[in-house]
């Protein structure tokens, strides 16, 4: 396939896509864990907030989230900052808007994955941790979280694939990702089919790599099963 000298542009776009996806994954995992903890907490307000969060996000298009944060985010932030007496102009660029929107979306679905995984952990695990003299937070990080992690990996792997594909939406607000760079190439070559097809193939490679990595992680997080699978 003749890329007519636009190969480097597509590579730089791929790098931006990967950065966006990984940053959103990290922030999104925090949202997901917080959401799950809130859903399982004894505090009714936390539960109510978390349910509101997941219900809202799961009914709203990701594109609408990206657009709202990109075009309305600075207005909202300046209003919040203004009430603390900070009056400087705040601007939200496409990358930050993208990370915010995608991690909010990822977090809502990850909340469910983590919640299911946490519910799988028997109460006895908590009790034995406490019985060994560990504090609640130490029990959580040493005993519960590693097991939740193992149970959550397959679900999170699927969600990451969705996230990876959703990064394409951020090109609509001008981020120079794979999609945007393909469009730049198309504007001078007039070959939309060729370049969108190349973009599609790059995404296929990325999703395939994600699948492979998820399988690796599943094995790494599960020492018990490693022996069986050889």
């Amino acid at each position: 396939m003749d890329l007519q000298g636009f190969g480097h542009l597509l590579i730089s776009g791929t790098w931006v896509t990967i950065q966006l996806a990984l940053s959103s994954l990290l922030v999104g995992l925090v949202f997901g864990l917080t959401g799950a903890a809130a859903k399982l907490s004894k505090n009714p307000i936390a539960r109510w907030l978390a349910t509101g969060y997941t219900t809202l996000v799961r009914g709203l298009p990701e594109l609408l989230l990206v657009l709202t944060i990109y075009f309305g985010g600075s207005q909202l932030l300046m209003w919040i900052a203004g009430s603390f007496g900070y009056t400087e102009y705040i601007e939200i660029g496409p990358f930050v808007a993208g990370v915010a929107a995608l991690s909010i979306a990822f977090g809502a679905y990850a909340t469910e994955v983590f919640r299911m995984a946490m519910m799988e952990i028997p109460q006895g695990q908590w009790e034995s941790g406490l019985a060994c003299g560990m504090s609640r937070s130490r029990t959580f990080f040493r005993i519960i979280l590693p097991q939740v992690w193992r149970l959550a990996i397959p679900g999170l792997g699927n969600l990451f694939q969705v996230l990876l594909k959703d990064t394409a939406l951020v090109s609509v607000v001008g981020l120079n990702d794979i999609m945007r760079q393909s469009q730049v190439a198309i504007s001078s070559t007039k070959e939309p089919f060729t370049f969108f097809m190349v973009a599609a193939c790059i995404y296929l490679l990325l999703t395939a790599a994600t699948t492979a990595f998820t399988m690796f992680m599943e094995r790494a997080a599960n020492p018990a099963a490693r022996g069986n699978r050889g």
Partner: peptide, 11 residues
Amino acid sequence: QDWDGIIPGLR
């Protein structure tokens, strides 16, 4: 300078 950050950069 990217368009989106051009005014903040000035300020």
